[in-house]
Amino acid sequence: METIVLIAAFLIAIALGMRLIHLLNAQHDMRIASHHYSDALPGVGRRRRKHHRSAPTPTAPVDHTRATR
């Protein structure tokens, strides 16, 4: 009998926790929906560089350990 009561208490606690999480998620969704964010202004954050430089080309490593004559 005690086992059944314990299992029922666990199930009720899980159901209440699920309901609480569901209500908190719904409240959070409503808060997000109430904020109206506009699109970014044209040109803001999209500036182009004055000079279109390409990345430097990699060169072969120079061996400085060899002595030159």
Rank of each mutant, 00 (worst) to 15 (best):
A13R: 04
M30K: 09
R49S: 15
P56R: 06
T68H: 13
T65R: 02
H22W: 06
D29R: 02
R66K: 15
L24Y: 05
R46G: 11
G45S: 03
D29G: 03
L23I: 04
R53T: 12
S38L: 10
S34L: 03
L11T: 09
P42H: 12
I4L: 11
S54K: 10
A40M: 05
L23P: 03
A15W: 02
T3P: 05
I21R: 00
H36D: 11
A8P: 07
P42F: 07
P42A: 15
V5T: 14
E2S: 12
A13P: 05
E2W: 11
L20G: 06
A55V: 13
P42Y: 07
K50I: 15
T59D: 06
L23K: 04
A8E: 13
T65L: 01
I7P: 03
T57N: 07
H52D: 12
V62E: 02
E2H: 09
R53G: 08
R66A: 15
R49K: 13
H35C: 01
A60G: 10
H64M: 02
A9I: 10
L16M: 05
H22D: 04
F10N: 08
L41D: 13
L41P: 12
R66P: 05
M1W: 09
H51M: 10
L11M: 06
G17V: 00
H22C: 04
V62N: 00
H36G: 09
T59Y: 08
M18K: 12
A26W: 00
I21V: 08
K50N: 15
A26K: 08
R31W: 00
R53S: 08
P61S: 00
D29A: 05
H22I: 03
Y37D: 05
N25W: 01
T57M: 07
V44I: 12
V44L: 13
M1P: 09
K50W: 13
L24K: 15
A9R: 12
Q27C: 02
P42V: 14
I12Q: 03
A15Q: 07
T68W: 13
Y37L: 07
D63Y: 02
S38Q: 13
A67D: 13
K50D: 15
N25I: 02
A33L: 01
R69P: 15
A13Y: 06
I12R: 04
H52E: 08
I12F: 05
Y37T: 10
P56Q: 04
A13T: 06
H51A: 10
V5Q: 14
V5S: 11
R48M: 14
T59W: 08
G45T: 03
V62P: 02
R53Q: 12
A60W: 09
T68M: 14
A33K: 03
I32A: 06
R66L: 14
L6E: 09
P42W: 09
I32S: 03
H51C: 11
I7W: 07
I7Q: 07
A26M: 05
H64C: 01
I14C: 04
G17C: 02
I21H: 01
H35L: 02
R53M: 12
A13G: 09
M1D: 14
A9F: 07
H36I: 09
R46H: 11
R31I: 04
R47I: 13
L23H: 01
R48T: 15
M30C: 06
R46L: 13
H36C: 10
R47K: 09
I7R: 14
A67L: 14
A40L: 06
T59V: 14
L16K: 03
